[in-house]
Protein backbone atom coordinates (compact mmCIF):
# COMPACT_ATOMS: atom_id res chain seq x y z
CA UNK A 1 0.00 0.00 0.00
CA UNK A 2 1.43 3.42 -0.88
CA UNK A 3 2.17 5.64 2.07
CA UNK A 4 -0.54 8.10 2.92
CA UNK A 5 0.20 11.80 2.85
CA UNK A 6 1.66 12.92 6.13
CA UNK A 7 -0.76 15.14 8.02
CA UNK A 8 -0.20 18.67 9.24
CA UNK A 9 1.64 21.51 7.56
CA UNK A 10 4.27 19.28 6.07
CA UNK A 11 5.92 19.42 2.70
CA UNK A 12 5.57 15.71 2.09
CA UNK A 13 7.54 15.67 -1.14
CA UNK A 14 10.62 17.20 0.43
CA UNK A 15 10.41 14.87 3.39
CA UNK A 16 10.19 11.83 1.10
CA UNK A 17 13.25 13.01 -0.79
CA UNK A 18 15.10 13.34 2.52
CA UNK A 19 14.08 9.88 3.69
CA UNK A 20 14.93 8.36 0.33
CA UNK A 21 18.38 9.98 0.37
CA UNK A 22 19.01 8.67 3.89
CA UNK A 23 17.82 5.19 2.94
CA UNK A 24 20.23 5.12 -0.01
CA UNK A 25 23.10 5.65 2.43
CA UNK A 26 21.91 3.56 5.37
CA UNK A 27 20.69 0.41 3.61
CA UNK A 28 23.95 -0.48 1.78
CA UNK A 29 25.96 0.25 4.91
CA UNK A 30 23.79 -2.05 7.05
CA UNK A 31 24.08 -4.81 4.44
CA UNK A 32 27.86 -4.31 4.17
CA UNK A 33 28.42 -4.46 7.94
CA UNK A 34 26.06 -7.39 8.52
CA UNK A 35 27.51 -9.45 5.66
CA UNK A 36 31.15 -8.68 6.54
CA UNK A 37 30.68 -9.53 10.21
CA UNK A 38 28.53 -12.65 9.89
CA UNK A 39 30.66 -13.99 7.07
CA UNK A 40 33.62 -13.74 9.44
CA UNK A 41 31.66 -15.48 12.19
CA UNK A 42 30.58 -18.30 9.88
CA UNK A 43 33.88 -18.96 8.15
CA UNK A 44 35.96 -18.86 11.32
CA UNK A 45 33.44 -20.81 13.40
CA UNK A 46 32.33 -23.47 10.93
CA UNK A 47 35.11 -23.82 8.36
CA UNK A 48 38.90 -24.01 8.35
CA UNK A 49 39.28 -21.50 5.50
CA UNK A 50 40.88 -18.91 7.77
CA UNK A 51 43.21 -21.23 9.65
CA UNK A 52 46.35 -20.66 7.62
CA UNK A 53 48.95 -17.93 8.06
CA UNK A 54 49.18 -14.83 5.89
CA UNK A 55 52.69 -14.23 7.15
CA UNK A 56 54.46 -15.67 10.14
CA UNK A 57 52.60 -14.47 13.24
CA UNK A 58 49.40 -13.44 11.47
CA UNK A 59 46.60 -15.86 10.60
CA UNK A 60 43.91 -15.12 8.03
CA UNK A 61 41.38 -15.20 10.87
CA UNK A 62 43.19 -12.37 12.66
CA UNK A 63 43.68 -10.40 9.47
CA UNK A 64 39.93 -10.57 8.78
CA UNK A 65 39.10 -9.60 12.37
CA UNK A 66 41.48 -6.61 12.29
CA UNK A 67 40.02 -5.59 8.93
CA UNK A 68 36.59 -5.36 10.57
CA UNK A 69 37.95 -2.68 12.91
CA UNK A 70 39.10 -0.61 9.95
CA UNK A 71 35.78 -1.26 8.25
CA UNK A 72 33.79 0.25 11.12
CA UNK A 73 36.00 3.35 11.14
CA UNK A 74 35.53 3.72 7.36
CA UNK A 75 31.76 3.19 7.65
CA UNK A 76 31.34 5.76 10.42
CA UNK A 77 33.42 8.33 8.53
CA UNK A 78 31.47 7.81 5.31
CA UNK A 79 28.13 7.84 7.13
CA UNK A 80 28.86 11.10 8.93
CA UNK A 81 29.95 12.85 5.75
CA UNK A 82 26.95 11.60 3.79
CA UNK A 83 24.50 12.58 6.50
CA UNK A 84 26.05 16.04 6.83
CA UNK A 85 25.68 16.52 3.07
CA UNK A 86 22.10 15.29 3.08
CA UNK A 87 21.13 17.49 6.01
CA UNK A 88 22.75 20.51 4.37
CA UNK A 89 20.84 19.80 1.17
CA UNK A 90 17.49 19.41 2.90
CA UNK A 91 18.02 22.15 5.47
CA UNK A 92 14.69 23.83 6.24
CA UNK A 93 14.34 27.00 4.25
CA UNK A 94 13.71 30.33 5.96
CA UNK A 95 14.44 29.10 9.47
CA UNK A 96 18.05 30.10 9.83
CA UNK A 97 18.46 26.78 11.54
CA UNK A 98 21.83 25.23 12.08
CA UNK A 99 22.12 21.49 11.90
Amino acid sequence: MPPSTPPGEFNAEQYRALESARKKVVTPLVILVVVAFWFQQIVTNFTSWMDGAVVSGLSWAYLYAFALFFLVVAVTTYYRRQMAAIEAKYKPSGTGADQ
Partner: peptide, 22 residues
Amino acid sequence: AVTGMDPGNPDHLTPAQRVAGH
Protein backbone atom coordinates in the same frame (compact mmCIF):
# COMPACT_ATOMS: atom_id res chain seq x y z
CA ALA B 1 12.10 9.45 13.62
CA VAL B 2 13.96 11.07 10.73
CA THR B 3 13.55 14.76 11.54
CA GLY B 4 12.78 14.99 15.25
CA MET B 5 9.54 16.85 14.58
CA ASP B 6 6.01 15.61 15.03
CA PRO B 7 3.95 16.85 12.10
CA GLY B 8 0.78 16.20 14.08
CA ASN B 9 1.90 18.58 16.80
CA PRO B 10 3.73 21.48 15.14
CA ASP B 11 3.50 23.82 18.13
CA HIS B 12 6.10 21.80 19.99
CA LEU B 13 8.70 21.95 17.26
CA THR B 14 11.78 24.10 17.13
CA PRO B 15 12.54 25.77 13.81
CA ALA B 16 15.86 23.93 13.63
CA GLN B 17 14.01 20.64 13.43
CA ARG B 18 11.61 21.48 10.65
CA VAL B 19 12.23 19.75 7.35
CA ALA B 20 10.23 22.12 5.24
CA GLY B 21 7.67 24.76 5.75
CA HIS B 22 5.09 26.01 3.37
